[in-house]
Design a protein around this nucleic acid. Structure first.
Length: 321
DNA sequence: CGCCAGGCCTGGACGC
DNA sequence: TGCGTCCAGGCCTGGC
């Protein structure tokens, strides 16, 4: 699930590979990959343009082209980007190909077809107009964060996933940041005290910065042009249901909040009395494997991880290694 | 075979 | 009224 650290890693890997290259053609193999533009118009729009820069905004990659145009790439769940020589191995999951003048091609590969690529000119409406602040930027001060928090009333978990609140946080790092800040995912923003707000701000930035250094979390299909990340080995709660909390050894619990799996320690992430009534219905569905169920669940999770690692290796092999 | 994973969008309900 | 919030459903496929 590519979030800010994963997309940042892809941008950093891609930057030295394609900056300065010229696009000569685009082939769209799955039409709905394109955001509001036909394959023909897209090909016309990118052909002849030079790649000036590769960046990131929230969870999207931004490829700046000559004449002020730019491409946006949202990897969503299973999107991957590779740069290979033209005429490489066939791959049924490649959805769009950008042919480069130097004989290479940029392949957008996406098993589940959720990914989206957009093309914008400098006179188009800003596709990022509604996206919130970049949490690792200098402008994202604790003061700015407090101001935004105090304008909100909802629960912390959905709030962190809201891309208009803060850009780039997804399910993995929302759970990790809340654990690091010792805040319950069902806690509402209005019950936070100044010290809680500061801990959350610190936690979001620390967790994301560490994940960028570790090249992101290679869970499921996420991999970058220059290889997998390793943050999945350093996660405290995400997908660790039933395992002991690293702070106090109490079992990590799993609930569903807004349709998303949510992992937390009910011992060190306490819910204040004011939020308990509203949380009761969700907390009744709390799950954590009993002692007997743990090995079974662990084995299943290990099998799933192994299958995903095999898929990533296959993707790399088909991309020419 | 049926269900699950989940980012984000849409449409609709609800409540201050 | 209008907005913030929340929820269900849709998009998809591989793995269990």
């Amino acid at each position: 699930m590519p979030e800010l650290p994963e997309v940042e890693t892809v941008a950093r890997d891609l930057r030295p590979l394609i900056t300065g290259a010229t696009i000569v053609d685009a082939t769209t193999l799955w039409g709905r990959t394109l955001r509001g533009i036909t394959p023909d118009a897209f090909a016309d729009g990118v052909a002849g343009r030079k790649i000036d820069a590769v960046g990131r905004r929230g969870k999207q990659l931004v490829i700046e082209l000559s004449d002020g145009a730019f491409l946006t790439v949202h990897l969503k769940m299973t999107g991957q980007l590779f740069v290979v020589r033209q005429g490489g191995r066939e791959d049924p999951y490649v959805r769009l190909v950008l042919a480069l003048e130097d004989g290479r091609e940029i392949r957008f590969r996406d098993i589940r077809k959720f990914g989206k690529i957009g093309l914008y000119g400098m006179h188009d409406a800003d596709p990022f107009a509604a996206v919130g602040p970049e949490p690792l930027s200098e402008a994202f001060t604790v003061r700015a964060f407090r101001r935004r928090l105090r304008a909100r009333k909802g629960r912390l978990k959905p709030l962190l996933l809201d891309q208009t609140f803060v850009a780039g946080v997804g399910n993995i790092y929302a759970d990790e940041a809340l654990w690091a800040a010792r805040l319950h995912p069902l806690r509402t923003a209005r019950t936070l005290r100044p010290a809680d707000e500061r801990r959350l701000w610190v936690a979001i930035r620390r967790v994301l910065a560490e994940a960028v250094i570790r090249r992101g979390s290679s869970i499921d299909d996420y991999t970058a042009p220059e290889g997998d990340g390793e943050m999945q080995e350093h996660l405290a709660v995400y997908q660790r249901t039933g395992e002991p909390c690293l702070r106090d050894r109490h079992p990590i619990r799993r609930i569903v909040v807004g349709g998303r799996a949510t992992h937390f320690c009910s011992w060190c992430q306490r819910l204040p009395a004011a939020d308990r009534a509203g949380a009761r219905a969700i907390l009744r569905t709390v799950s954590y494997p009993g002692r007997r169920a743990v090995p079974d669940r662990t084995r299943r999770a290990a099998a799933t991880r192994q299958a995903a690692a095999t898929r990533r290796a296959a993707a790399r092999a088909s991309a020419g290694g």
